[in-house]
Simulated scan of single mutants.
Amino acid sequence: MIRIQDHLYKISLTIILGLFSIPALAQLNMGARGLGMGQATTALPNYDWSLFSNPAMTSNESMAVGFYGLRNYGFSELTDMSAIGSLPTNFGTASLGFHRYGDNLFNETRIRLGYKNEWRMLHFGVTANYNHISFGGDYGSGGAVGLDVGIAAKLTNDLWIGARSINVNYAKYSGIDEELPRDIALGFSYNLNALALFSFDMVKDVRFPVSYRGGVEISVVDELKGRVGITTEPISYSLGFGYAGDRWDVNVAVQKHELLGFSPGIDFMLYF
């Protein structure tokens, strides 16, 4: 009976992925703060997970390490797990990230190495991204190395503008007729009197329509912040909160897909 239930569960999961293959892909952006703000992270200041969105926005204030987990639509087989570390130096900020999605039926692994520097009000960054996907059984696997670039500018003390492009070298998986995802994004953020931070992105994946993403972060009390966000293509809603200590912070968020349901996520950061 247990084996039958296990097979039925896998069949149901396969049907869901087949019907909704576009939104069931692994998340490209990491971090619960960004998830709670509708994934509008292209120009989000002081965002610890910028290596996975716009490397030009990587923080250069202190050395940091962090961990993030997201369970997509309640399925353990569709879990995103990632880790990140950043190290500011006199020559810019170096960062290293790791991300894994899926299970033994299908999984995707990413290793990212980033560099960020700035000149006056202009910030710029580049990321080398090794992707590896593997299918269960004898269905094969493949790897590819993509390059992502990003720029950002602090126009005023409260206003940021940023842009990024993913897979600028048009990398393809070896042995598999599949390209790495390619998209471009333009984003803005505005800090309203330190009480609320607004963020807005326009993202165009070459395969899909333009996605509009927006979110707001509100200071509730002391270091406690609340967040809400929305995305289109596909439509999803999100909310979350975060609390920052002297040398750490923790963020929790949940995203509601219009068809597939809820995806809860949490991250934890340490600063040195």
Score class of each variant (00 low, 15 high):
208 F>V: 02
133 I>H: 00
193 N>P: 04
159 L>P: 07
98 F>M: 11
56 A>K: 03
37 M>Q: 06
248 W>Q: 03
49 W>Y: 14
235 I>W: 07
270 L>H: 12
3 R>I: 05
241 F>W: 07
10 K>F: 13
244 A>N: 07
185 A>D: 03
95 S>C: 13
73 Y>S: 08
78 L>W: 10
2 I>S: 08
1 M>V: 12
221 V>P: 08
68 Y>Q: 02
128 A>N: 08
185 A>I: 00
10 K>A: 11
62 S>N: 14
136 G>Y: 01
159 L>T: 11
119 W>M: 09
184 I>R: 09
105 L>S: 08
139 Y>S: 06
52 F>L: 12
260 L>S: 02
115 Y>H: 11
34 G>Y: 01
229 G>D: 05
35 L>R: 01
101 Y>A: 08
193 N>F: 15
49 W>T: 10
210 V>H: 00
34 G>M: 05
95 S>L: 09
6 D>Y: 08
250 V>I: 15
200 F>P: 00
10 K>I: 15
46 N>S: 15
32 A>E: 02
89 T>L: 13
20 F>S: 13
11 I>Q: 10
234 P>C: 05
14 T>D: 11
145 V>R: 01
266 I>N: 01
255 Q>D: 09
149 V>L: 14
116 K>F: 12
104 N>H: 11
222 D>F: 12
130 Y>C: 01
178 E>R: 05
87 L>K: 13
63 M>D: 04
24 A>F: 04
207 R>V: 01
269 M>D: 03
2 I>Q: 12
96 L>S: 11
157 N>Q: 14
216 V>Q: 04
188 F>Y: 06
225 K>H: 14
175 G>K: 00
48 D>P: 14
197 L>M: 12
167 N>R: 02
219 S>I: 15
270 L>R: 09
125 G>K: 04
144 A>C: 06
249 D>A: 07
10 K>N: 12
98 F>E: 07
211 S>I: 07
122 L>S: 06
123 H>F: 13
9 Y>Q: 11
12 S>A: 15
125 G>W: 14
109 T>E: 06
119 W>D: 03
13 L>Q: 11
149 V>N: 03
55 P>K: 03
224 L>Y: 02
56 A>R: 03
104 N>F: 13
88 P>C: 10
186 L>V: 14
88 P>L: 09
168 V>E: 03
163 A>K: 06
162 G>L: 08
232 T>N: 06
72 N>E: 12
211 S>G: 04
160 W>R: 08
108 E>Y: 07
234 P>Y: 09
227 R>F: 04
59 S>Y: 10
256 K>E: 11
106 F>I: 00
94 A>K: 14
234 P>W: 11
150 G>Y: 07
120 R>E: 07
84 I>V: 15
175 G>C: 00
215 G>Y: 09
245 G>S: 05
31 G>F: 10
93 T>Q: 12
202 M>F: 07
176 I>R: 00
158 D>F: 04
15 I>H: 09
220 V>T: 07
